[in-house]
């Protein structure tokens, strides 16, 4: 009973925070993700992994928000936050550039066909 009450409380809490909408969003996005990847030729698996890797760099937004909330005299938060922004940016930029380099290789295909 106690646990059920806890779960009900949690859902109520989420509802208050408007988080329930987010849960719908999560479920829909899971389906979108599955749909997007299911019919992809194996040649593209690696670039896709790399591209998805860059997209989860969106955690950078969180790092920026955290920095925005940190008070200027909270040194530890500022240091950690700056580090979080830095590594988040590495994830985003590095991810997109590596993916682009991989896909650049594939782009030669139409050119090669024309030349030969």
């Amino acid at each position: 009973m106690e646990y059920i009450q806890a779960i009900i409380d949690l859902i109520a809490q989420y509802e208050q925070q408007n988080t329930l909408n987010l849960i719908y969003l999560v479920i829909l996005m899971i389906f979108v993700g599955v749909e997007l990847i299911s019919h992809v030729p194996s040649v593209l698996h690696t670039p896709l992994m790399s591209g998805a890797n860059a997209i989860h760099g969106v955690v950078l937004i969180g790092a920026i928000i955290v920095m925005g909330n940190a008070s200027p005299d909270d040194t530890l938060s500022l240091v950690f936050g700056t580090l979080a922004v830095f590594v988040g940016t590495l994830n985003v930029i590095g991810g997109f550039v590596v993916t682009d380099r991989m896909l650049e290789m594939f782009k030669k295909k139409p050119k090669g066909e024309k030349e030969s």
Partner: peptide, 15 residues
């Protein structure tokens, strides 16, 4: 963040 994260979470699992 939520959409990007979940998208990668599910797409990555399927991949």
């Amino acid at each position: 963040m939520l959409m990007g994260g979940v998208l990668v979470g599910s797409a990555g699992t399927i991949l």
